[in-house]
Amino acid sequence: MTDNATTTIVSTPLTNADRCDRCGAAAKVRATLSGGGELLFCRHHYNAHESRLVEMGAVVHA
């Protein structure tokens, strides 16, 4: 008998109240970090940090 556990990340949709953690503009992207934290980015700051987020294994929800 095998135990196939699956982890599902459920992300609530971004709203107008969600703001970029860098500049306070409307958030367009949520990045969930492997350690469980999350960061919100406007499109500009996401583009600036995308490569590092990928290196860190972040799950991105746009």
Rank of each mutant, 00 (worst) to 15 (best):
M1G: 08
M1S: 11
T2Y: 14
D3G: 09
D3Y: 06
N4L: 07
N4M: 13
A5C: 05
A5P: 04
T6F: 13
T6Q: 13
T8M: 13
T8K: 10
T8P: 08
T8F: 12
T8N: 08
T8Q: 11
I9N: 12
I9L: 11
V10G: 07
V10P: 04
V10M: 12
S11C: 05
S11D: 15
T12C: 03
T12R: 09
T12Q: 15
T12A: 12
L14Q: 12
L14F: 08
T15S: 15
T15D: 10
N16K: 07
N16I: 06
N16V: 08
A17P: 11
A17K: 13
A17R: 11
D18W: 05
R19Q: 11
R19F: 11
R19N: 09
C20F: 10
C20Q: 03
C20Y: 07
C20P: 15
C20R: 02
C20W: 10
R22Y: 13
R22F: 13
C23P: 14
C23L: 08
A25Y: 09
A25Q: 12
A26D: 13
A27V: 06
A27E: 11
A27K: 02
A27F: 04
K28E: 14
K28S: 09
V29I: 15
V29D: 00
R30Q: 11
R30C: 01
A31L: 01
A31P: 00
T32Y: 03
L33H: 14
L33G: 04
L33C: 03
L33R: 15
S34D: 04
S34Q: 07
G35L: 00
G35H: 10
G36W: 05
G36I: 02
G37M: 13
G37Y: 07
E38Y: 14
L40Q: 02
L40G: 02
F41D: 01
F41E: 02
F41R: 02
F41I: 03
C42K: 05
C42Y: 04
R43I: 02
R43P: 03
H45I: 02
H45V: 01
H45F: 07
Y46F: 15
Y46D: 00
Y46C: 00
A48M: 12
H49L: 10
H49P: 03
E50R: 15
E50F: 06
S51H: 13
L53I: 03
L53N: 01
V54T: 15
E55Y: 04
M56E: 12
M56N: 09
G57S: 14
G57M: 04
G57E: 12
A58H: 04
A58G: 05
V59L: 08
V60A: 03
V60Q: 03
V60Y: 10
H61Y: 14
A62G: 10
